[in-house]
Design a protein around this nucleic acid. Structure first.
Length: 553
RNA sequence: GCGCUUGUAGCUCAGUGGAUAGAGCAACCGCCUUCUAAGUGGUUGGCCGCAGGUUCGAGUCCUGCCAAGCGCGCCA
């Protein structure tokens, strides 16, 4: 077991023994690597955090824990209590060797979540762009975030399905059809209709049969656009378990009618001005909403969205939607309607992604979805590649608007974080390759004896060697913890930042410690074990974020 | 006007109610006869938007204000 897990287990036991009822305090978050080296190698604020629930002064609590920890843990050289209630731990050199041993022995870098969440199915919907045009950078951010998050949650054992909702019914599709028709048969063009710009539609009109009717044409163009979207998503490594068509799966299965009937039976609808209304203001919405339009008797977007979510609840226990910030207006109406239909509102969550703008030559180009000057995923991807595209979009929290600096993403040097991280991985691979070429065989790195691993922190090393080794090993030992933290807060960008952090510690180690040294083969072996651990963790981290971990650069 | 999100170093951003608020870039001074210099060591740089409040303790929680982005359709 890793040292921080042992500490947290002992404190947890203490908590159980001293507190009759169950508590939900997450001790993992109370044990960390302190910023300041004066506060030990690992430190904990557990006494401060637990003082209230245990109704005990933090300092007294700290002393009791100190005694307990000192009895049970052999790898601590010092347990210091600092007022008002910190416990700071210093590790014996042996502890670092034990972390390395742990990683050598354990294939599974990440533990599965122990929770009933694992038995529940979570359906994550993201991107869900209209099939009426190319995907833009904002869709790209949603796609990258959603795919990374889904992968992150799968990694800790959650049951996840991902879905793209195809909005292939409604006004926007009509508009698409008419726009296409006017270019397809200019002599029979419809006058006075709202149209998409010709340059956006034209690329999808090649090689058409001559005598299509409007419906056939609309269908063909829509499918071509959708296929293009799928292709672009695939190019940024985004795939979905399901593609849900509003037209074919929602409308043709009477899902809307069923939903209307259910709402009607709960006396939540009424007719007014020739339209069907939902009494959403009664349910907590700002005002009532239209479900069926008066003019053409077709359902509104909201009506379809409610029915779609009912459909999703039939297939999953929990729902997570990832939408662009411009969709926030629909949240309240949707939530109150679903609650009225009897669905638990704690099982349905929407995350909103703030906008992306493009920074080129230091000038910001804001995107606007409807004005024709959209910046597509494709044009950015062509310049920077999938890895940089994904990493740059992941770095910033989705609650912040993001300026995608295309010049930075194209740079192949230390300024570009994705290169920094990938370079660290490639560098580690290179050292392992070289080591196995001349000095060692692959098997030599398999079961390295404890007394050899001990050399990694031996007395004779310089302070800089010891410090950089400690920093790297400790940081690596928190990988599982960081993955779980990122998953819990639905925030894959925290993992991206962690990877930058370990890359930084690794480069530092590399600068301080010569690894391959024929004059000290045992120290070389110990350090190779560390590099192998680093490589495995970096590779796994990048894999979760769906970014390539190159062996060579 | 109402709602959501944001405001932290010159820039881009981390920051889980705890200690002296961190990183990268930029600027400045160093490091290649050494395993990938696509790298690294160091220095400089902060009314954490403002004002109150809760707390033993607030960048973090609450209230008000200021500023920015987005939203407030029988569009989707």
């Amino acid at each position: 077991m890793l040292i921080q897990d042992s500490i947290s287990e002992i404190i947890q036991d203490y908590l159980i023994n001293n507190l009759p009822e169950k508590t939900n305090i997450n001790l993992q978050n109370k044990i960390e690597i302190p910023q300041n080296t004066n506060y030990g190698d690992i430190s904990s604020t557990a006494p401060l955090a637990l003082s209230k629930v245990l109704k005990k002064a933090p300092l007294i609590l700290a002393e009791e824990l100190q005694k307990l920890l000192a009895e049970k843990l052999q790898n601590l050289s010092e347990i210091e209590i600092i007022k008002p209630g910190f416990i700071n731990f210093k590790l014996k050199p042996k502890a670092y060797r034990e972390i390395l041993e742990y990683f050598n022995k354990n294939e599974n870098l990440i533990t599965k979540l122990q929770s009933d969440k694992n038995n529940q199915k979570l359906l994550i919907e993201f991107v869900s762009a209209n099939p009426t045009g190319d995907l833009h950078l904002g869709h790209g951010r949603g796609a990258v975030f959603g795919s990374s998050l889904a992968n992150l949650l799968k990694t800790i054992g959650q049951n996840i399905i991902t879905e793209f909702y195809i909005n292939d019914a409604g006004e926007q599709i009509n508009k698409l059809g008419l726009s296409a028709w006017n270019l397809y048969k200019p002599d029979q063009a419809f006058d006075g209709v709202d149209q998409y710009p010709a340059e956006l539609i034209q690329p999808y009109l090649s090689d058409l049969e001559p005598n299509l009717n409007l419906e056939e044409l609309t269908d063909i163009v829509k499918n071509r656009i959708l296929n293009k979207q799928k292709e672009v998503l695939k190019n940024i490594k985004v795939e979905f378990d399901g593609w849900f068509s509003e037209k074919n799966e929602l409308h043709q299965n009477n899902c809307l009618e069923k939903t209307f009937k259910l709402l009607e039976s709960k006396n939540l609808t009424y007719q007014k001005d020739n339209a069907l209304w939902l009494k959403s203001s009664e349910l907590g919405d700002e005002r009532d909403r239209v479900l069926i339009k008066s003019e053409n008797k077709k359902p509104t977007y909201l009506a379809g969205d409610i029915a779609y979510h009912v459909h999703k609840f039939g297939r999953a226990d929990n729902l997570l939607d990832i939408f662009g910030a411009d969709h926030q207006g629909q949240e309240l109406s949707l939530k109150v309607a679903l609650k009225a239909l009897g669905y638990d509102d704690t099982k349905f969550q929407i995350l909103f992604i703030q906008f992306v703008s493009l920074l080129r030559n230091g000038t910001e180009v804001k995107m606007s979805k409807r004005n024709g000057s959209v910046i597509t995923i494709e044009e950015v991807l062509d310049e920077v590649g999938a890895d940089a595209f994904r990493f740059m979009l992941l770095l910033s929290n989705i609650n912040n608007k993001l300026a995608f600096d295309i010049d930075l993403a194209k740079k192949a040097d230390d300024q570009n974080p994705v290169f920094y991280v990938q370079y660290a991985h490639a560098r580690a691979c290179s050292i392992l390759r070289n080591a196995c070429q001349d000095l060692f065989k692959e098997q030599d790195l398999e079961n390295i004896k404890p007394e050899i691993l001990d050399l990694i922190m031996s007395e004779s090393l310089s302070d800089r060697e010891k410090q950089s080794t400690k920093d790297l090993i400790l940081k690596l030992s928190f990988f599982n913890h960081e993955v779980h933290r990122a998953a819990e807060s639905l925030n894959p960008s925290a993992l991206a930042h962690y990877l930058i952090d370990i890359a930084n510690k690794f480069h530092s180690f590399y600068g301080a410690c010569k690894v391959i040294n024929p004059d000290n083969k045992n120290l070389s072996l110990a350090r190779l074990a560390l590099i192998k651990t680093f490589k495995g963790i970096m590779q796994k981290g990048l894999e979760i974020l769906i970014i390539h971990a190159p062996e060579k650069m």
